[in-house]
């Protein structure tokens, strides 16, 4: 796989949220605003970068039987380091995200990348994968956070979009709103994917001789 393919795969085709439906706990828990989504995503990107690089570096050395505890130790160390750093230098955000930072350890998306990708690929490929997966995850968190903030509070990144008389639409802020908004977003993603597939099929059909193309379109 080329770097571009790895990136497209991690960011979109194999997106943690849209395709794998992993990492639901931080997704539904912290996405009451786009800003929360951004910082949670950023913390996850840093953890993924760290764990993917280290796992890729030690992939030849760690015996197969103990690889999972080794990976988890690596991930937990990075999560704790990033949690401490946030507590020290971004105290206000740390208080908001609080509980969800240590919970990154059990975000199966991260162990998933260590096991499925970093343990089988070079360091540079693993960095690309970490960035792609991490940014894709951040994008999903911000999208859901933005939708909930926009409809729930009429704001985006704290700015009043619909004027400051907007009556709060509580359902979007409460947990059920997260599930419902996520459902609509997933439906949208499926529509986009289907269009993309249809367009790709059409392009292929056009590339082939005229007679066969008609048949393909009819089918």
């Amino acid at each position: 796989m080329t770097k571009t393919e790895i990136f497209a795969d991690g960011f979109w085709h194999n997106n943690t949220i849209f395709a794998q439906l992993l990492g639901m706990c931080p997704l539904l828990g912290v996405t009451t605003s786009a800003e929360n989504g951004f910082w949670m995503g950023s913390a996850t990107v840093l953890v993924l970068l760290g764990s993917n690089v280290v796992v890729s570096l030690i992939r030849g050395v760690i015996p197969k039987n103990v690889r999972i505890p080794a990976y988890i130790t690596v991930i937990a160390a990075f999560v704790t380091i990033i949690g401490m750093a946030m507590d020290a230098w971004m105290h206000a955000m740390y208080l908001v995200l609080g509980l969800f930072i240590p919970l990154i350890v059990v975000n199966c998306a991260i162990l998933g990348r260590a096991e499925a990708f970093a343990s089988k690929h070079s360091v540079t490929d693993s960095v690309t994968d970490a960035l792609a997966i991490g940014l894709g995850f951040t994008f999903a968190l911000m999208l859901l956070g933005g939708v909930r903030e926009l409809f729930g509070h009429g704001q985006l990144f704290g700015f009043h979009v619909f004027g400051d008389q907007y009556p709060d639409f509580l359902m979007f802020i409460l947990p059920p709103g997260a599930f419902i908004a996520l459902g609509f977003i997933l439906a949208g993603v499926n529509v986009i994917n289907r269009r993309m597939a249809a367009r790709a099929a059409q392009r292929e059909a056009h590339a082939e001789p005229a007679g066969e193309a008609v048949g393909a379109e009819a089918g």
Partner: peptide, 29 residues
């Protein structure tokens, strides 16, 4: 050996981070 080394390195890193961040965390609080 592998698990011991991984754990030791992780512990070392956490110790260093704690040393570096203890003062700023205290200040932030």
């Amino acid at each position: 050996v592998a698990l011991t080394v991984v754990t030791l390195v992780a512990t070392l890193l956490l110790g260093v981070t704690d040393l570096v961040t203890r003062e700023p965390i205290h200040d932030a609080q």
